Simulated assay, not measured.
Amino acid sequence: MDKYQHSQKDKLFKTDKTDPYLEAHRPGGSAQCPECGAKYHAGQWSWHADASHVSVENFVCPACRRVADRAAAGQVRLAGGFLQKHREELVHLVRNTEAREKAEHALERLIDVAEDGDELLVTTTGLHLANRIGHDLEAAYDGDTSYRYSDSEFYLSVDWHRD
């Protein structure tokens, strides 16, 4: 591949857009969130980072800031007759999906699960959790699902419907 083709390919797959909640305020070194206990080390937030050998500052993680600001990165809207008959079961699936995703990815959490008329609106701190909830709904209950990313690439809206 020549140099020109390679540089064009890089432009297609790399974006200079950055999520303001991830990039705006990064700890200088190692940190721990005083709200949830997540740890920041080597550029990553996790539950298991070993920063015992370095000084650690208190720093509120991006997920806790999103929850406090109610600034969702993703939403899942559930609708249809199936929701009305199986609401508790569907909420249980959403909460179990969050528990699995959150255990591995410290910044993927639910902000809210709320009634919105005849629909259920789930808001999340991360795109991946919204995406995973949509896929888990499809896998468990079929239905029609659509995924729409915003132009900024930092917001995902998932609609799930089953009659």
Rank of each mutant, 00 (worst) to 15 (best):
S30P: 02
E98D: 00
L156M: 12
E153Y: 07
A140Q: 13
E98L: 00
S7G: 01
E119K: 08
D10T: 11
D50R: 12
A139P: 02
H6G: 01
L110W: 03
G37K: 12
V60P: 02
S157G: 13
A99N: 05
E88I: 08
R77A: 05
D16R: 09
H161N: 13
D112L: 03
A31R: 11
T18H: 08
K17Q: 09
H86M: 02
A114V: 14
A103I: 02
Q84N: 09
C64E: 14
E153I: 04
K3V: 09
A71L: 08
K102F: 12
Y21A: 01
A140H: 10
H48I: 14
L83Q: 11
F59L: 05
R26A: 09
K11H: 04
A103K: 13
S7M: 12
L90K: 03
W45D: 01
K3T: 12
T145E: 05
D159F: 04
R100M: 07
W45S: 00
C33K: 08
L129I: 10
D118W: 00
H135V: 03
K85E: 14
K14L: 13
K9S: 09
A106G: 07
A31I: 03
D144T: 15
A68H: 14
D19F: 08
H48G: 10
P27A: 05
L90R: 02
S157H: 12
T124F: 06
H92Q: 13
Q8W: 00
L156K: 05
D142E: 06
V158H: 01
Y21I: 00
K9V: 05
S157N: 07
A63C: 07
D19C: 15
Y4D: 00
D50I: 01
Y141K: 03
A130Y: 04
N131E: 15
D69A: 15
A63N: 07
E98K: 04
V91R: 13
A38Q: 05
G37C: 01
S157R: 14
E23S: 14
G29M: 04
Q44E: 14
T18A: 11
R77V: 15
L121K: 10
R77S: 09
E98H: 01
C36E: 05
A38H: 09
G74S: 11
D116I: 00
W47D: 03
D2M: 01
L120S: 04
L129G: 11
A31E: 05
T145S: 13
T123C: 06
Q8S: 02
R100L: 06
V158Y: 03
D159E: 14
Q75M: 07
A71W: 10
W45T: 02
C64P: 08
H86L: 01
V122W: 06
V76H: 06
V76M: 11
G80I: 10
Y40R: 08
Q32E: 10
D116N: 11
H48S: 15
K102W: 08
N58T: 09
G81T: 12
L129C: 11
A103Y: 05
Q5C: 04
C36V: 02
A106D: 08
S55G: 01
W47T: 03
A103W: 03
L90Y: 01
T123M: 11
G143S: 06
L127K: 06
A24M: 05
N58P: 02
N58M: 10
H53S: 13
Y40S: 02
A31M: 07
P20G: 03
A79P: 01
G81D: 12
D136W: 02
E89L: 14
V158C: 00
L127D: 02
S30W: 12
